[in-house]
Nucleic acid binder design. Structure first.
Length: 905
RNA sequence: GGGCGGUUGGCGCAGUUGGUUAGCGCGUUUGCUUGACAUGCAAAAGGUCACAGGUUCGAAUCCUGUACCGCCCACCA
């Protein structure tokens, strides 16, 4: 007798088997010309990352796909790695040194980077360790980091190649500036949020016209210090005559022109807009059209700079706002204040309000790169799942501006550009004030050299101490190369080029919707440009993990559920199975702690079913015939469970092929629990030692474990290892084949009749409160010889499952006196319970049943009387309705006949 | 301003090209120390599929509109 604990102990198996898999190198993949490749690149988590439910969902999906394909025989590679996460990591290290009272400037660039590398060594792989706790079968030997030496080379190379083609350029442009991080951000890194503010109506006196003034409306009065014009719409009759006149900018007391620009909306505010080219993207565009000068009025930390009147200098932007409003008020220049809601960009890292800021930055020419990336998706060669994201993607591609890639931080890939200080200064001086017109800076003219190595001298003046650009590249400028840079591109040795050729393009990318623009779109661009092929053929976009009220989980809200805590409490398989069952394609998932009980209970069910089978398995018998054919199985219950198993397997395989993970999980669950355990194992108890039962118990369990393995890797391995098996691990065992010979719908229908009959009897027992252990008698009256045969041969199923002591099966039997009745299609069941049942109550029960069926009959009848239905509906539908009608009629008649026998008063 | 998603029994959700008596999990009720499992077993109750029109022989499913909730995009001074 084997003793197995009644409860599954996840912790123990998780540790044991994960180690076993790693030791045996099962996660590792090599180029194998005999097999097809299947590759997924992990969305590299930030080194600052701490595992959250989003990761749990994202990586469970990937691991399921990877394990599924691995079992199917693909050369399966899941490439792992981490992202250096420029701003995020720098912020973390800055916080750390702040405890020592230091700022990064105190350390200096070199020392600060040393600290950051140390931090990375210490904490940077936390997330990797955590991913292992989820059971992820990544090829860890190949783990990459976006700042690895070779990877960095790819980044630099890409920068140079794009710069050479003019696809990367330097320009004076208005960008998003985070005053706290003190760096430029891309459009995507500035997250728009609705902010309740005010619209301030400010009077600008007209020059040379006494008391006359015009009124502009603004939400950010502090920027008025940088106004270089006032604009009206030239079609606006009210103000047309103002164009060409001059106003005196209050507080600054400078003369600025009134210009006409069609971008001005006459309906908004007063229809007159102040133009601040250096601090508003809209105004910047106006300024370019009118060759206006851009006056920067803020320092990088968003305090007012030396270009504003002394009183406001060094004030914070919001402080300055208050001061300016007060001063305007005092001068009678503040007309009114109207509450106004508008959306304002916020830094996606620190949530500080972003300032539009005019500055010199590096950009990628996105519209150019977008062409091929747009095309490949339009053609359908790259598919999104669910498909609605295609539209979102294409729409984004259409509206692209330049991508600002320079960041004024230290942690990251330093821009491979060098300046000659003299020549650059000369260039700047020559272009001062013209900057708006000459948006792109001519690198040659400005003596900016883009190259892999530090250039020896300035080609213009010969100076030898050239200075490297201080800025680093946007983190996403390295992650967009991920699918090919991880293989060593572009400096490939022989092995690497083989691998790149074999594994690129990869198969699927799994990610969340908020990453589509940041990363997915850009990877497609980079892939198309550098590899001439999209980096993957399918993109699976999963939903966002939320709490039970539908709020996004976040640390600051305190509504997070820690996946590792769930693993500890419920087990990894429970976490995986629960989360995957909840996620319908692309739908968000609302989680609560108790949602994981389902997965835990399922794991426990698997454990106990296996426990039962193992304790009863005669290993010799089970092993005896591993390749049985359908002919060897004669018993209904055995044929049925095999038929159901292969149907389920077929379902699960197809669902996984189509990224329908919840369907797959539900099929497994339904089959295992409600068919295999509830019916088959229960029935099998009576024939446990028969060869057929032994074979089928073993065969179905073993194959079901394999089917479940991608979802629940640990418990399936644990159980599988205790069963007779071939091979070293379930994770490298083959995905079962759908053996069609076992699928038999007639068998399913027959078994269904038996099951329905058992349920009907149990129902009667329950209604009349017959004690569970009390044996009763039953008579089953059937309509045909075939049914008589079926019920006779399955009499034992019914007797065992419904606790029937003696069962009589016959044709057209009459209801014994005082018997309870159940009417099923072509079957009547009588349970003699004279004295126990209440005749009137039983009659009411049957009448209710009859009433229900009559309602159905009415609907069916109506359909069949409808000539259009008969002529227009497909034949098989009509046929089905006809059959249904006959069955209903028959059942109703039987109910009526039985009711007659009750002789009610 | 534009786009997208959601609205199905008390709660959380499935429902693939329109066609079974609309399913599942949790919860609820009743009964069970049935020899794998009380993280269990058995039986049951509970829904006019947000609303209004339309298409169709037939609509939870397709179309139009409305309401509410949520998300994304946009140069809304």
């Amino acid at each position: 007798m084997i003793t197995i604990p009644p409860r599954y102990n996840p912790k123990q198996s998780e540790e044991k088997w994960y180690q076993f898999w790693e030791e045996n190198n099962f996660f590792h993949a090599e180029v194998d010309s005999k097999r097809k490749p299947y590759c997924i690149v992990i969305p590299p988590p930030n080194i600052t990352g701490i595992l959250h439910m989003g990761h749990a969902l994202n990586n469970t999906v990937q691991d399921i796909l990877i394990r599924f394909r691995r079992m199917q025989g693909y050369a399966t590679l899941w490439m792992p790695g981490t992202d250096h996460a420029g701003i995020a990591t720098q912020n973390v290290v800055e916080k750390e040194i702040a405890h020592e009272g230091l700022r990064r400037q105190d350390l200096g660039r070199e020392k600060f980077l040393e600290r950051t590398w140390l931090w990375k060594e210490k904490y940077g792989s936390t997330i990797i360790t955590q991913l292992k706790k989820l059971g992820c079968s990544c090829d860890w030997q190949r783990t990459r980091f976006t700042m690895d030496e070779q990877y960095s080379l790819a980044v630099t190379e890409v920068f140079i190649r794009l710069a050479e083609r003019g696809l990367i350029y330097k320009a004076n442009y208005i960008i998003n500036w985070c005053p706290r991080c003190q760096t430029a951000l891309s459009d995507e890194e500035s997250a728009h949020k609705e902010v309740k503010g005010n619209l301030y109506y400010i009077k600008y006196p007209l020059k040379d016209s006494g008391m006359d003034y015009i009124v502009v409306a603004t939400t950010r009065p502090e920027t008025m210090l940088g106004d270089t014009a006032v604009a009206v719409n030239p079609k606006d009759k009210r103000y047309k005559k103002l164009i060409g006149k001059t106003v005196i900018l209050p507080l600054v007391e400078e003369e600025i022109p009134i210009i006409g620009d069609s971008g001005v909306d006459p309906k908004f505010g007063t229809g007159i807009v102040k133009v601040t080219p250096a601090h508003d993207p809209n105004d910047f565009e106006i300024a370019r059209r009118h060759s206006l000068y851009a006056k920067i009025v803020m320092n990088p930390n968003a305090t007012m700079n030396q270009n504003v009147p002394l009183d406001y200098q060094r004030m914070d932007r919001f402080e300055a706002r208050e001061a300016i409003l007060e001063d305007l008020e005092e001068r009678g220049l503040l007309e009114k204040i109207v509450p106004h809601e508008h959306s304002v960009g916020h830094c996606y890292r620190c949530h500080t309000m972003v300032e539009p800021y005019f500055s010199e930055q590096w950009f990628v020419d996105m519209p150019k790169l977008a062409e091929a990336a747009e095309d490949i998706v339009k053609k359908g060669k790259l598919k999104f799942h669910p498909p609605r994201w295609k539209k979102v993607y294409l729409n984004w591609m259409k509206g692209l501006h330049g991508w600002c890639i320079s960041r004024q931080i230290w942690w990251g890939h330093r821009i491979p550009a060098w300046y000659c200080p003299d020549c650059k200064r000369a260039y700047d001086a020559a272009h001062k004030g013209k900057a708006l017109l000459t948006e792109r800076i001519d690198l040659l003219e400005a003596s900016i050299l883009v190259s892999l190595e530090n250039p020896k001298f300035c080609p213009r003046c010969g100076r030898t101490d050239l200075k490297q650009d201080e800025d680093v590249l946007d983190t996403w400028f390295s992650s967009w190369l991920w699918p090919f840079a991880i293989f060593g591109w572009p400096t490939l040795d022989k092995k690497q080029s083989e691998e790149l050729k074999y594994f690129y393009p990869t198969q699927v990318l799994v990610t969340a919707q908020e990453i589509i623009f940041f990363w997915v779109a850009r990877m497609i661009m980079a892939g198309m440009h550098f590899m001439k092929e999209a980096p993957f053929s399918d993109v699976y976009i999963h939903g966002t993990v939320r709490d039970i009220t539908g709020t996004k989980m976040s640390k600051s809200l305190g509504n997070i559920i820690d996946p590792l805590e769930i693993v500890k409490q419920y087990g990894c398989d429970a976490l995986r199975f629960s989360i995957i069952s909840l996620v319908a394609t692309g739908q968000d998932v609302n989680l609560a702690q108790n949602k994981f009980e389902g997965g835990r209970n399922f794991a426990n069910k698997i454990w106990n079913a296996a426990r039962f089978i193992l304790t009863n398995l005669d290993k010799e018998k089970a092993k005896a015939d591993l390749c049985l054919s359908a002919k060897d199985i004669t018993e209904l219950k055995e044929r049925w469970i095999l038929s159901r198993f292969y149907q389920t397997l077929d379902n699960v395989t197809k669902s996984l092929d189509n990224f329908r993970f919840n369907d797959a999980a539900k099929s497994c669950y339904e089959f295992f629990w409600h068919e295999f355990c509830d019916w088959y194992i229960e029935l099998a108890k009576k024939t446990i030692s028969s060869k057929q039962t032994q074979l089928v118990l073993y065969k179905v369990l073993e194959k079901t474990l394999r089917m479940l393995h991608p979802f629940m890797p640990f418990i399936t391995e644990e159980v599988w290892q205790s069963l007779p098996h071939e091979g070293k691990s379930i994770m490298i065992s083959p995905w079962p084949h759908v053996e069609k010979q076992f699928i038999d719908e007639k068998i399913d229908a027959q078994m269904q009749r038996i099951i329905s009959s058992i349920v009907a009897i149990r129902n009667i027992r329950s209604v009349w409160q017959i004690e569970t252990n009390k044996n009763i008698q039953a008579e089953i009256s059937v309509a045909s010889q075939a049914l008589e045969k079926l019920f006779s041969s399955c009499a034992s199923y019914i007797k065992d499952s419904a606790r029937i002591e003696s069962l009589k099966v016959g044709r057209n039997l009459k209801r014994p006196k005082g018997a309870a009745v159940a009417v099923l299609t072509d079957v009547e069941i009588f349970i003699p319970l004279e004295g126990i049942i209440n005749v009137e109550k039983e009659a009411r029960r049957l009448t209710q049943k009859r009433y229900d069926l009559e309602k159905l009959l009415e609907i069916t009848d109506k359909k069949l009387k409808n000539k259009e239905f008969i002529s227009k509906a497909p034949k098989e539908i009509v046929e089905r309705e006809k059959e249904k009608k006959e069955k209903l009629k028959d059942s109703i008649k039987k109910l009526k006949d039985n009711l007659k026998g009750f002789h009610l008063k």
